[in-house]
Design a binder for these strands. Sequence first.
DNA 1: TGTTAATCTAGAATCATTCTAAACTAGTAC
DNA 2: GTACTAGTTTAGAATGATTCTAGATTAACA
Lengths: 142, 142
Amino acid sequence: MSNHRPFANALELLRAAKLRPTRQRLALAKLLFEKGDRHVTAEQLHDEAVAASIPVSLATVYNTLHQFVGARLLREVVVNPGRSYFDTNIADHHHFFFEETGKLMDIASDRIEVTNLPQPPHGAIRRVDVVIRVGPKGSGAA
Amino acid sequence: MSNHRPFANALELLRAAKLRPTRQRLALAKLLFEKGDRHVTAEQLHDEAVAASIPVSLATVYNTLHQFVGARLLREVVVNPGRSYFDTNIADHHHFFFEETGKLMDIASDRIEVTNLPQPPHGAIRRVDVVIRVGPKGSGAA
DNA sequence: TGTTAATCTAGAATCATTCTAAACTAGTAC
DNA sequence: GTACTAGTTTAGAATGATTCTAGATTAACA
């Protein structure tokens, strides 16, 4: 894992996030956070839960993922039209996106330097996302 | 406009891209390329066409946008789950994304420096996208 | 143990996008 | 010009991810 999560287990994690620790939230938190950094879609997580005999509906998976994002336990990553990834690594970092497989890979923020950031004309910078799109060796680059 | 398009008009543009210059492709090309750099969704472009009394179906707008992307007349930008933007600026550049309004703004590539790019474990880098997410002045940053 | 508000769920609904099969048209040959 | 053909366009259905709805369940706490 790339960042220290100051919680011994899923229960404390939920408590700290002020989310009532229900069966399904506990189970999903375990699936998400007890395996190192991951990038999952809602459907993938639902499949995993079902495979692990955890009865949970897809709607609840969506609700829970969004609550976790709201509580800053997860980050939503958008690289592909029509499908969201949820990233358990909430530290400042960036991504490779492999177009062929649809997979994401973390890049620690100290491996890339983004300097000279211009200020937006109004509002405040929330986040800087760098996505390096990777395709098969052949065909022309952008 | 930030890049020179070596075509006097929509007709030459389509010819060069080897796309048959049909009524609707010509009309859409005009809407897209005769107003400087733009970021449009399929639905927005369709609305514009309808407003300009150009009879074109939404399906054709989608087809055309994707053909233009294939011909490198446009770039698809993904910043928001469930909605694609098409960018008429095909020069290397980056974006501000204003979360409140859903609008994009170009950042010329020489205004940001991304150095130290790591090599992907396999495949070739297609593109490097930097998105600076901007929110209202208040609430916490990432 | 009872009450209550929060949560979960199945299934319907929505939204962007893609597909399908039939109608149309640009380009070429005559 | 007229006819032919391949490429396009289209309405409408289909799809896939996500959200909504309203009723059933459950955690929390007296």
